[in-house]
Simulated scan of single mutants.
Amino acid sequence: MIPVCDVQNRKNETGFSLTKVGVTGVRKLVHVKRPDEHCNEPLVCMIDVFVDLPAEQKGSHMSRNLEVIRAVVSECTEEPTTGIEDLATMIGKMLLEKHEYAKFSNVNIVAEYFKDNVTPHGKNTTEVYRLFGKAKCERDGGITKTIGVEAVGMTACPCAQENVAQTLNCSKEWPVITHNQRNVCTVYMSMDNSCMVEADDLIDLINSSFSSPTFEVLKRDDEAAVVINAHRNPKFVEDMVRDVLKKIVDEYTELPDDVEVVVKSESEESIHKHNAFAERTATLGELRN
């Protein structure tokens, strides 16, 4: 039998280490079961995994990444994972076992998630959101996991509303017309592996911060209610970020100060050809101060 040459283990001559080497876009069906009946359903996940590569090594063993993903996801078929951020942590730790030359691993997972909701007039509906789970695992045992969600809602511009009210000399009995935006809001929370945050709670927190949540199907009474509610609650993209930050500080009093929070809000403008964007990155301790 001709011996197989391990090209990856050959010496690299250029002298540069690499921070991330791996595979992207691996699709897997993952079984998730959260406490208290949160998210007890399979999720179609897109998984990216990486390890660092030392300067002296020519290549990373890519097939090990797929073997790790398959092994961990297979375990979740027998016993569902508690969340995609926990799945990312499990994959990240096993990557370091398989890649003995790596100092750390990074895992990113994205999934579509369907959550039950209720329209303003009480009709049941199911809306789609995006979930994010990330993990950075270090050889010395350090683990940082990230849970994130993305929700789409509606904002109404307070500046245009004020201009219209002054132009038309409107009374304040009813909300004045203004232009609207489809707003995409994303929240990430990065924390120690021992902490836990429910994606459902983050979704509810974001939905409560829009001028109005939006819905896949609206009959006439609900359609009117969404528009009226949004115009009674106009917001800039900056207001969205600040309102979400305030609610996170108020809601997660038990989490430690070193939890990192990222809130992004992007409004797809209706009267402009550009979008409006706002973002804040800070630790909970900084926000509390």
Rank of each mutant, 00 (worst) to 15 (best):
S265W: 01
V118D: 07
D48I: 04
K235W: 05
A156D: 00
G285Y: 15
P213T: 04
N106A: 14
V51C: 01
H121G: 05
E78T: 05
H61S: 03
S267Y: 00
L245N: 00
E198K: 15
D258A: 09
E238W: 03
N275C: 07
V249S: 02
Q166T: 13
A224P: 02
E223M: 01
A71K: 11
I84L: 07
P120K: 06
E13I: 13
P80S: 02
D243M: 05
S171A: 12
E266C: 11
V21S: 09
V197T: 06
K134W: 12
C137D: 04
P80T: 01
A199D: 05
D116Q: 10
C5I: 13
S190G: 14
K115A: 12
A135Y: 05
S267R: 00
K20G: 00
S63R: 03
E269F: 01
W174D: 05
R64H: 14
S190L: 14
M154F: 09
R220T: 07
V118E: 12
V7A: 10
E150Q: 14
G142K: 11
T214M: 12
S211N: 05
H38S: 10
K235V: 06
E97D: 09
L205D: 04
V217H: 11
P213A: 05
F50T: 02
R34Y: 07
S208M: 11
H274N: 10
P54C: 04
G133N: 07
E173H: 12
Y252N: 01
E173R: 13
A156T: 09
V152R: 12
G133C: 12
V217T: 11
T89A: 06
D52K: 07
E223A: 04
C5Y: 13
T24W: 06
Y252Q: 01
D222E: 04
G15L: 00
K20E: 09
D36V: 14
G122T: 12
T281Q: 11
E100A: 15
S17I: 00
R130F: 15
V244H: 02
D52P: 06
E279A: 14
K11G: 06
A71R: 10
V226S: 04
V259I: 10
E198H: 15
T283R: 03
D222M: 08
V73A: 01
G153H: 06
T82S: 14
R34V: 04
R27S: 13
V227K: 08
V107C: 10
F132P: 02
E150K: 11
G142D: 07
H121V: 04
V241T: 11
N275D: 13
N163S: 15
G25D: 06
H99D: 08
V23T: 06
D6M: 02
F132T: 08
E85G: 03
A282N: 08
A111H: 10
H61G: 02
I147V: 15
N233C: 06
K33R: 14
K273V: 08
E67G: 15
D204N: 14
V107D: 04
P256D: 06
A282I: 10
V32D: 00
P158G: 06
G22M: 02
P35T: 01
A151D: 02
R10A: 12
D200S: 12
G133H: 08
Y113L: 12
I147Q: 03
S74L: 03
I143K: 05
T81K: 01
N275L: 02
V263K: 02
S63C: 04
